[in-house]
Simulated assay, not measured.
Amino acid sequence: MLTRKQHELLMFIHQHLETTGFSPSFDEMKDGLDLRSKSGVHRLITALEERGFLRRRAHRARALEVVRLPTQKMGSDRQDKSISSLRSVDPFIESFSETRAHKIPLLGNIAAGSPKEAIGETNSYIDVPSDILHAGPHYAVKVTGDSMCDAGILDGDIAVIRLGSTFENGDIVVALVDKAEATLKKIRKRGNSIALEPCNSLYETKIFGADRVEVQGTLSGLIRSYRK
């Protein structure tokens, strides 16, 4: 049984190998997993080696090899090929070997109007097409409210979020305010202030000190169910 971070790193390396043909650097792995130091990456790699998921090729730089994935059995060539066709990665993902879909955690509701209680842990999961995912862990939240409607984000939509704290001005993010309220908004940082902007003229932009806002991920895609 792998820990969440071990699973996340293994899938990050797997995706990088599939995309580029070579393993990621320690700096890329540190940044990709939001780790504080490269020593943390080293510990995770060592643990994955000991469990038979990774192998280091001797005398070669950036030469990690994924021996198997958690959903695979050793020596299964058919599973190897089906897993390698998947584009995206997630520490929570349960991959489907013959489809291009993934399960990611659905963490309840999030406001696209007034901020609501912060998202919490859940045992609920949702199937997500892999083509709207990127490298790294993802989760999903259900949107309530209409303050992001001009960005095409409607009440009842499922927002797929790439977990992480990095962002660029203009990104749509899940922002945790004062460690208590989570909201989906467009974000802009100006000096020591952060603006959380709605995409609906009926709502006002809110300004906070940078120390009051924690970005919990950026919008990766939307899932919408047809409703009459």
Rank of each mutant, 00 (worst) to 15 (best):
T122C: 08
G32N: 07
T218S: 04
G221P: 04
H102D: 11
Q72V: 04
A175K: 00
I207G: 04
R78L: 11
M29L: 04
I132L: 08
R190T: 13
I207H: 07
I172R: 02
G170E: 06
Y139C: 08
S114K: 06
S97F: 09
L54P: 06
V128G: 04
R68M: 14
D27S: 14
D155C: 10
L219S: 09
A61H: 14
H134Q: 12
I104C: 02
T122L: 09
N169S: 03
G164E: 15
S37G: 07
G21K: 02
P24W: 01
K116M: 01
V89T: 11
V89I: 12
I110F: 00
G191Y: 05
K189N: 05
R162Q: 06
T166L: 11
V215P: 01
I119K: 05
A47K: 13
N123I: 08
I45Q: 07
F26L: 12
M29R: 13
T144V: 10
I172P: 10
H7K: 04
V174T: 14
G170K: 10
D34F: 10
S165K: 12
A140I: 02
G170A: 03
E121W: 13
Y125C: 00
I194R: 08
D27Y: 06
F96K: 05
G75M: 00
A175L: 03
L9D: 03
R78Y: 13
H138M: 01
V89Q: 08
S37V: 11
K103T: 13
G108N: 11
